[in-house]
């Protein structure tokens, strides 16, 4: 680990000022960043600890909620309002990591965690365009079972590892940020970027910009929502495929539906084609399957991950059937 200066920010203005220094990084719970620093994949000169900033979880007048970026993952998952009004968010958080890590990890840090691509981590032996732009990507022709099937490029096939972010993508969350130019908000769908020719650029944040809060908009059918994760063991593993979904059924017809996929792309994958294909259709397995087929039509498998396409389709159908419940 390289040497660095550690400072603890007491307010957002100070955090942004300190974070504006060259090679500064914001530090949340450290569950990803400390590991990346130990692997020398991150070499900050200044660490600005922002865990003392707002961790409040509050109701908004418009019916939504606002979660301070320093809120711990456990605090969000155990919050009564989150559990009853946004159950998929609680379930997505509880599907991720372990009890110990959820006690440490913050909401802001969860949004900015880096990929778990093994070639990205293999600093000594592999080429990676995220680590070293222009090097090439050894995952594309390597062992790529865990890699992307949607939205990848010839530069990068890494996936985003977060469970929580899949729920936030489904909810159309809004990210509140502050930088040297002031405050602004970013639609969740615009926060994470697909790799294109620049996989080293992972978010739309400007250098030094700090995530201060995540806003959950009101969603009338969010209470009828869930999260399902498919992985190599029953607990404490990253997703091969995951599905966050909410659905509103009226008289046997899908009135509203939201779906997002995890483990399939460099960002949480909002299934807009599926939503368009399913809205107004009968709430049955045939419709669910057809909508899932539409969403995965452009999926591009690598040598070892074609199974993800069928797993994604079946998981989508199973989750929507569960949400339809006795209305099928």
């Amino acid at each position: 680990m390289n040497n660095f200066t550690y400072v603890r920010a007491t307010d957002v203005a100070e955090a942004v000022r300190q974070g504006g220094q060259a090679h500064a990084k914001f530090l949340g719970g450290g569950t990803n960043l400390v590991d990346l620093m130990r692997e020398t994949l991150e070499r900050p000169s200044v660490l600005v600890d922002v865990t003392g900033l707002s961790s409040a979880i509050t109701d908004r007048e418009d019916g939504g909620m606002l979660i301070g970026a320093a809120a711990k993952n456990t605090a969000v998952a155990e919050h009564r309002g989150v559990r009853t009004r946004y159950p998929l968010l609680a379930r997505a958080i509880l599907a991720g990591a372990s009890g110990q890590i959820r006690n440490m990890a913050t909401v802001g840090g969860n949004l900015l965690q880096r990929t778990r691509c093994t070639y990205f981590y293999d600093d000594d032996g592999s080429r990676c365009n995220k680590r070293g732009p222009g090097q090439g990507c050894d995952a594309i022709d390597g062992f790529n079972r865990i890699h992307a099937i949607l939205g990848a490029s010839s530069s990068c096939v890494a996936t985003h590892p977060s469970d929580m972010c899949v729920a936030l993508a489904m909810l159309d969350a809004v990210v509140h940020v502050t930088g040297s130019q002031g405050e602004r908000t970013i639609a969740f769908a615009d926060l994470h970027l697909l790799p294109g020719n620049h996989p080293e650029v992972e978010t739309s944040l400007s250098p030094g910009e700090l995530i201060t809060a995540v806003e959950l908009p009101a969603l009338s059918f969010a209470q009828r929502s869930t999260y399902r994760k498919v992985r190599d063991r029953a607990s404490y593993a990253f997703a091969l495929v995951s599905v966050a979904a909410a659905m509103e059924v009226d008289d046997g017809v899908v009135k509203g539906v939201r779906v997002a996929l995890g483990g399939v792309a460099a960002k949480p994958w909002r299934a807009l084609r599926l939503e368009a294909a399913l809205t107004g259709r009968p709430a049955n397995e045939e419709s669910f399957r057809a909508a899932a087929e539409a969403e995965l039509a452009d999926a591009q498998p690598l040598r070892h991950n074609a199974f993800k396409i069928e797993v994604a389709k079946r998981t989508i159908v199973a989750v929507l059937a569960e949400l339809a419940g006795d209305r099928l």
Binding site: Y6, L27, G29, G30, T31, V34, D35, R38, L47, D49, T51, T74, S98, G99, Q100, I101, N103, M104
Partner: peptide, 25 residues
Amino acid sequence: QGACGACTVLADGERILSCLALAVQ
């Protein structure tokens, strides 16, 4: 690296992984 739990301790009563924690935090 946060994958095994052998380093678990309690911080203010809450279980955490001491390997992923900087002491200064």
